[in-house]
Amino acid sequence: MLETMANYFSYPFVRYALIVGILIALCSSLLGVTLVLRRFSFIGDGLSHVAFGAMACAAALGLTSDMTVVLPVTVAAAILLLCTGNKSRLRGDAALAMISVAALAVGYLLMNLFSTSSNVSGDVCGSLFGSTSILTITKTELILCISMAAAVILTFVLLYNRIFAVTFDGDFAAASGMKASFLKVLLAVVTALVIVLAMKLVGSLLISALVVFPALSAMRVFRSFRAVMVCAALVSVFASAAGLLVSIAAATPVGATVVVAELICFLTFSVIGKFLGRN
């Protein structure tokens, strides 16, 4: 067993995939806690569909580097959805659902109309359920991913206390003199970045799992914000590493395996929570 593992690690693509997978999962779990608590659990879904639509647009326009379209569009959608007042929560929810499915439909349509590839449904399936592209990461992509993750983690460490205050009670934070709206915009931008990255790992249909499962698992057991953050990060690192290794060893789809690993963690934590009488 250990030998086979050691064998896998001798391949650079396995190491790269593991590093990228863990970093992406770590970032999305950090964001996930605030998103779940602000009742934006489905933002991951919505934004990744927007990114999918934008990707299809870029392909239709024949752009070689699709990130120049995908990133600005997704960031704009994130700011629009996350930074409107919380009084219009219901409308925000409906807007999210609308944007999400509309982007998905338009993206699929464009891909069918304009795709030059012979395997359209394969391409679509890849971007919806996570392609194997995480296993074919280049060194540049690896470096890009590491620097992005470092920026996200640094943001969370430095702004941790403020993120707590804004998430807990945005009005008080603004009233007591914090730049609450700036923080919200910053979080929206970071969310968009992480989600575009995370699409690589699990695809746009399963992305919500990376956002919500670690946060929900941690909230089953822990009762303070700090503990929930730390635990969510650990759960997510563990689940993504386990999921990736299993999928490589058993040749299962990467995204689905990672999500199942997250689900198993959640169930385990639920049981522990019940055991400790915290429900």
Partner: peptide, 26 residues
Amino acid sequence: YLPQQTVIQRDFPASVWEIVLSGCLG
């Protein structure tokens, strides 16, 4: 500021210590 109603979600994990400290962030 002490709000009339705080719309804090029922499942928000926050300890008293964390909340009180957050008062001086501004």
